[in-house]
Design a binder for these strands. Structure first.
Lengths: 189, 189
DNA sequence: AAAGAATGATGACAAAAGTCTACAATTTAA
DNA sequence: TTAAATTGTAGACTTTTGTCATCATTCTTT
């Protein structure tokens, strides 16, 4: 499992990283079933997860306790509640697995040590941040500019794997559409 | 004008930055009227702007050529189209001033020099990225979890200055609500 | 293999949001 | 300072989206 992370780092920083094994040793492998809770709002987010395999859902509750999906993240990506992880304040979001997953978790201490002792890792962190931000930007633009139907089309165009891989319920929640409406709109295509 | 940026950096990095004047010298001051176009989609985004005074709108067009606002950014903040600025690819977003503004612009060359010669600035960049990302996360959550009316309430709670300072048309577009609907919902409060 | 739970589709209806028009009020630019 | 343009509000109407109930189907779990 750790080899997948090694590969992820190598493709971003090149092969000759002195302390790559030191870095890797700071990650703890976790095997999960589906629907395992990794973070609940109110708790402090203690880890950053690298997803070697599987899929995580980041979600929030509304007044009616419906679950609304802020992000769906698949393998070869990172997941955390950054604000809580960075500040130590309680998280406002929840995270769970939606598939049996293989994760590599690093805690705050490990993360900070890594950033200090392996300056290059700072670069990886920046890349992760930039990618996450870019993702958010596109996502916001779909919400301000597109109707429900067009958001569905957008997802099919831009993240076709998500559409086929995950349940309609999840996808609808990710798109900010009621699941019944999603079902109807899909039929229209 | 440059003093405002100096202050911005000092509060983030502390007073004893060796080369702060070198950094500041790389920024070009720009005075704008309102409604000045800083970037049009298709162009490459060549600058990062620090807003010393005023307000910028980042927006995209939909099929009907309506303008949809991805972000509204006021003084003491940064604005750019990061993906285009970073990659040199054509921008997918537009940027204009919505108020007469005082901006400090740095181009790619200046930016890269800065990151290399003043390693501390890298930290500022990271902070900007993190803040922008955090912002986006909250914003996405308002879209997946809240109705139009609740998004209005959210904005009044969390960014009350925006509400009073900018036109209803802009705010409606920022919230992803039709301007007529926005007018009606506001009356309901 | 079977019971139970979750999922996805559908119809009927309700509520929310969007469109269009008109008009007064305000702002902008000549 | 005025003419022109933009903005904000309102009513009547349409479309989109949400809700609820039902039912067949598929997954899960025992």
């Amino acid at each position: 499992m750790i080899e997948i992370l090694r590969q992820h780092i190598v493709t971003r920083l090149g092969k000759n990283i002195d302390q790559i094994d030191l870095v890797l040793s700071k990650f703890k492998p976790i095997e999960t079933k589906r629907n395992e809770q990794l973070l609940s709002q109110g708790e402090v987010c203690k880890h950053v997860y690298f997803i070697a395999k599987g899929c995580l859902q980041v979600y929030v509750y509304d007044q009616d306790m419906n679950e609304n999906t802020r992000d769906l993240i698949i393998e070869d990506n990172w997941c955390t509640e950054l604000m809580s992880f960075g500040s130590g304040q309680p998280a406002s979001e929840n995270i769970r697995t939606v598939e049996p997953s293989q994760l590599l978790a690093i805690d705050r201490k490990g993360f900070q040590e890594m950033m200090e002792t392996v300056p290059q890792f700072d670069k990886v962190y920046k890349q992760i941040l930039e990618a996450s931000y870019a993702n958010s930007v596109y996502r916001i633009n779909t919400f301000v500019a597109l109707s429900a139907l067009d958001r569905i089309k957008w997802l099919m165009q831009n993240r076709p794997t998500l559409m086929t891989r995950l349940s309609s319920k999840l996808i609808a929640s990710y798109l900010g559409i009621n699941k019944d409406v999603f079902s109807r709109l899909k039929a229209q295509l």
